[in-house]
């Protein structure tokens, strides 16, 4: 009887051991993903990115000088923006160089077109450019506009005259300025 009991215990232990062999043993390693903030901006164009805005002299004595009106040079503003939830960005434009007295340069960015996706920025309409940054596009979240021409925001420029200033101070001369665009946090 004693032997029988011991025998049963041995068989049970043996069964348990065999059973445990069927259980897998595992190990693990961590895979982490860190997607950082990104703010990339570029201007895309076919050919030359220069824009020439010229005043036209009047053919009738006594009438005012007309400036070039609106000029679209097929310049497209592309950007890729990765930011945190609820964070927004904007595009500002700044004039670098000396704008003739009485001459007003304006820019308008159309709403984004093309292959872009995400929370694309909205145009602020026509804005006056100066040596201080002017908000051209705002409300940019995490998005991309698509790259190259016909993607993103098409830019167009206007020249206007502040007549009081212009006729007092302006000379007949060429003025060249740069317009610098910046993709920045909108706090």
């Amino acid at each position: 009887m004693k032997h029988k009991g011991a025998f049963l215990v041995i068989i049970m232990l043996f069964s348990l051991t065999r059973f445990s062999l069927g259980i897998g043993e595992n190990t693990e390693h961590k895979a982490s993903v860190v997607i950082p903030d990104v703010a990339l901006l570029s201007l895309q164009h076919d050919g030359n990115s220069n824009i020439e805005l010229m005043g036209t002299s009047s053919s009738v004595a006594g009438s005012k000088i007309e400036m070039g009106g609106e000029a679209t040079a097929d310049i497209w503003l592309n950007y890729s923006s990765v930011c945190h939830k609820n964070q927004k960005r904007k595009v500002t434009a700044t004039v670098v160089g000396e704008v003739p007295e009485g001459v007003i340069i304006k820019v308008k960015a159309d709403n984004s077109v093309g292959t872009g996706k995400g929370e694309l920025g909205k145009t602020n309409g026509t804005v006056v450019l100066s040596s201080n940054p002017s908000d051209v596009i705002s409300g940019i979240g995490s998005c991309y506009t698509g790259s190259g021409v016909h993607n993103g925001h098409l830019l167009s420029y206007q020249l206007e005259i502040d007549e009081d200033m212009f006729y007092q101070a302006s000379e007949n001369k060429l003025a060249s300025v740069h317009v610098v665009y910046t993709l920045t946090d909108d706090n």
Partner: peptide
């Protein structure tokens, strides 16, 4: 890009 800046992780 449209998913925004974020961190996530898993155990393989």
């Amino acid at each position: 890009v449209t998913q925004g800046a974020q961190d996530f992780e898993t155990n393989v």
